[in-house]
Nucleic acid binder design. Sequence first.
DNA 1: AACGAAAATATAAACGTTTTTATCGCTGAT
DNA 2: ATCAGCGATAAAAACGTTTATATTTTCGTT
Lengths: 356, 356
Amino acid sequence: MAAENPTARRSAPPTIKTLADITGYSIATISKALRGSPVVAPATREVIFKAAREAGYQANARGMALRTGRTCQAAVLMPVTAAQNYEWDGVEYTQILSGISQALDGSDYRMSVHVVRDAAEGCDVARRVIDQGLADGLIFSGILDDDPRIDLLVESRFPFVSLGRCRQPLEYAHVDIDNEWAAHAATARLIAGGHRRISLVNPERRLSYALDRIDGFTRAFREAGLPASHDLVVEGDLSTHFGRESAARLLQSAEPPTAFVCINESTTLGVLSALGSLGRQVGVDIDVIAYDDINVSAYFTPPITTFYQPIEVLGRTLGEFLLRRMAGEEPKELRQIFRPKLIERQPDSLGGRLVG
Amino acid sequence: MAAENPTARRSAPPTIKTLADITGYSIATISKALRGSPVVAPATREVIFKAAREAGYQANARGMALRTGRTCQAAVLMPVTAAQNYEWDGVEYTQILSGISQALDGSDYRMSVHVVRDAAEGCDVARRVIDQGLADGLIFSGILDDDPRIDLLVESRFPFVSLGRCRQPLEYAHVDIDNEWAAHAATARLIAGGHRRISLVNPERRLSYALDRIDGFTRAFREAGLPASHDLVVEGDLSTHFGRESAARLLQSAEPPTAFVCINESTTLGVLSALGSLGRQVGVDIDVIAYDDINVSAYFTPPITTFYQPIEVLGRTLGEFLLRRMAGEEPKELRQIFRPKLIERQPDSLGGRLVG
DNA sequence: AACGAAAATATAAACGTTTTTATCGCTGAT
DNA sequence: ATCAGCGATAAAAACGTTTATATTTTCGTT
C-alpha cells in the first residue's frame, strides 16, 4: 500500500546532511532539532521537522549507535533444551516474546533474541551483551537459586529484568509468578478434597521457583497438620516425557499418589498420558491440578483444574519494566508478582471413592 | 569462570587503534589483517592476531556496521495471532527460532526477531528492514498464495529465505514441507481404511499451503475414483478453539465425517476435545490423522497417527540457507522441501464398525 | 648501480550521528 | 560607545571501522 512518491525513490536515503542542504541549517542544528534539544528556536524546529517529514528521513541507527553507544536493542535470552528430543518444552516462549515485543512497540527499541542452551551459556551471552554492548538491556528467565547472571548484571549496573527471581536479597527488576502461593493453593485444594498422597511434579531443584513450589506444597500440609508427601515430589526437565515417566512410576509404586500437582502443561500432558495408558480416569480415580501456560488445559479430556496466568502479560510487563529500567528508573520500583487465577474444572475431591 | 586478567580491566575496550599503538602498525593494516586481506604479510598478520588475542580485542559491531552497511543481523518475522485469546498458536515458533539460531551460531550473525500480527504488518516490517538496513537478511513464514513480501524482496534483491512458498514461478530461497504430498498420503490412508467422509481441517485459503493441502486431499479421492468430501473441508485460524468448534459442528451435521485430517497439533487437540465431549473415541468410532508440529501426538489419549517433521530442522535449514544466500549464493540452489515421516499409531481403518 | 615493478604499509577520507566548542548578532546595562 | 550576556546557529571533533589512494620498502632486472 502506502507507496511513496514514486519518482527518484531509488537514491540514497536522506541523512541529516540532506536535511541540512534542504533547509540551509547546519547538521548540528538538524540533529539537535530532531532530538528535541531546547536550544534550537521553535520556528527552526518547525522547518526542520517539516523537511524531515517530506524527505522521509529516518535516523540511521548505525550512526547513532556508533556515536552514542546506544544500540536501541533489547536482548532476550531464550532458553531451549538440548535438542535431541524435539519436544514441547519452551512452548510458552513465543508468548513471552510476543508480550515483550508489544511493550517495545512504541519505543524505538528492537528485540534481539539469543538462544541459550544452558545456564553457563546464558552467563556467557549475558557477559557478551554487556562487554560488546550488543544491547542496552537484557531480559532472561530460568532463574537459579543463586543465579550468576543476576550477580553479574547487578554488579555491572546493566539494565535488565528477570522473569523469576533468585532468593538472594539483591535489588533488581523482576517479574514473577507467585509460585509459593500457587503450589500452596493447589495442594491445599487437594488436601481439602480428601487427598493425602499428593505428587508434586516439579522442575529441577536448582531453579529458584522449584524451591518456591516445594515451600508452598509443604506449607499446605503443615497448615493442615498433616505430613507432607515429600516422597512423591519428582524433579526433572519439564518435558512431556518426564511427566509421563514420573507419573507411570509413581502410580505403580507401593504407595501411589491419588493426585498430581503439575508445574506446566507439558508435564501435565505427560501425566495424563500415563493415566490413560494405565486406564485411570481423571476425576474418577485420580485428580490433577496444573499450572496453565498457554490456555490449553481446557481442551484436555476431561478438562482439568488449573491455575492460569496469561503468559503474554508477563512478557508485556517484562518489556515495560525494561523500558523503564533503561530510562533510568530504579529497580526497586520494578517488581511484580502475579498470582495466577484458579480455574475450577473438576471438583478435585477424593470423595469416598478411593479410600484405603 | 574464565576471568580475564583482573588488572586494568575496567578501561575502555580495545579498538583497532589500541592494536595499532601496541603493534606499531597503522589502523589500516590492523583492519586488513583482521579481515584476512591477502595484502598483509603473513608475519605481520601473526603479530597482529597475537596482539588482538592478548588485548581481548572484539570488533565493534557499530563501527563496522556504519562503515560497511552490514549489520550482522538476520531478521526473523515471527507471526503471532491477535492477542485476545491466549492460545496455543505459534507454539512451534520456539523451535524454529532455535533452529535458525543453531545455524547462525558459527557465523557472526545475530538473530533479531520482529513480531508481526498480520500479513500487512509483515510487509511493513519487511520494507523497514530493507529501507533502514535493519538486517542483512530476512526469514519469514506464513506465505500467502500471492505474497507481497516475496515480490517486494525479490524485486529489491534483498537476501531472504521463506518458510513455505508461494505459487508464483519466482526464484527465491525457501524451505517447505511437502503439504500436497502429506495431505494426499493422510487422505489416501484413510480412504484405504474404508473412510469416505473425511474432514480436512485446514488453514485459511489465502495461505499458500492451504491450497497445497486441498490439492493433495482432492488428488487422493480422485486417484481412488471417489468424490472428494469437499463439504467437510473447514478453514480458519489454527487455534485449538477452532479445531474444537469445527469438529463439534461437523459431527453433529447430517452427514458427519468418519475421520479427520488435521493440519497441526493445536487443531488436533481441539478436535480430540470435541470428540471427548461427544463421547466419541478415536480408533473406535472415528479416526484422526494429524500433522505433528512438536512431537506431542504420541501423548494424546489414545496416541494418534501423525506425519512428523522435526521443526527445528526446518529452522536450521532456514538459517543455513540464509547464510549462504547472504554470502551471495544463487536462490536457485537454496530450496528444500521436506516430506514428513508417517508415524502409525492407529490402524486408521473404518473396518466394519461404522458402516452406513 | 639504477630502475621499475611488486609487495607492504601508511595516510586520509568516509560512513551518519552527537556533542563540545566556537562564532555571530543582538539586547541591555554600564 | 563598549561590552557582558545571551540566544541561536555553525564548525569541528569524535565514535570505530573500511577502503581508496599514496607512500615506502623490497627485490629482481638490466
